[in-house]
């Protein structure tokens, strides 16, 4: 069972990098970070919460809770135009499409040094499970990390994580991997 879990996990999150810096060399200029959802759907919101929690554990960033985020941004969650042309079964990424003005506005509301905005526009199930292999629904995510002040983009992410089909919750082990990689690459690993 563990073998299949490991194979499944490696196929989903560790096949490719889940985060890369767009500004190098990178040295963090502050500690306050918020993870927010750029969409109003349940999967984006739940992912923002799980990643925020995992990042709080894995990194030296002081991560705002989703409660603090909701208190700081009027009417959170809100739709922020994301970095893609379409996103049904695959995300057709186009980083030029992000509504940067809106991102800067949100950054000001939150008063953080770093803002990680994620979009999870679709969860896809392909085929059924077999006796030997559990086929999890997969949520695809695209995200950007912005630095204050000015909202300069310093990092990008595109990855997929597994969702438990019973609880509809993302598997926290997948998000732990994402958080660890982000912490490692931003030199904030605990």
């Amino acid at each position: 069972m563990r073998l299949w879990t490991a194979i499944g996990l490696s196929l989903v999150v560790s096949g490719c990098a889940t985060f890369h810096l767009t500004q190098e060399p990178f040295q963090p200029k502050g500690k306050k970070l918020a993870v927010i959802s750029g969409m109003t759907n349940a999967s984006s919101l739940s992912l923002a919460e799980v990643l925020g929690d995992e990042l709080g554990k894995a990194s030296r960033f002081q991560v705002l809770s989703q409660k603090q985020v909701a208190q700081s941004i009027p009417n959170y969650p809100q739709l922020v135009k994301g970095p893609y042309k379409s996103a049904y079964f695959e995300i057709d990424v186009d980083y030029a499409k992000t509504d940067l003005a809106r991102v800067r506005e949100l950054q000001q509301h939150l008063g953080v040094d770093y803002l990680y905005v994620l979009w999870a526009p679709a969860t896809v199930t392909r085929g059924g499970s077999t006796l030997f292999f559990k086929n999890y629904p997969i949520t695809q995510i695209v995200a950007q990390l912005f630095e204050s002040p000015g909202g300069k983009e310093v990092g990008r992410s595109q990855y997929a994580v597994r969702v438990d089909d019973q609880t509809h919750q993302v598997l926290s082990e997948d998000m732990r991997r994402v958080a660890l990689e982000l912490a490692e690459k931003t030199h904030t690993l605990k």
Binding site: K85, S86, Y88, E90, D92
Partner: peptide, 8 residues
Amino acid sequence: RSKGYYVD
């Protein structure tokens, strides 16, 4: 064609 063409 683009990735989402047929769904669009």
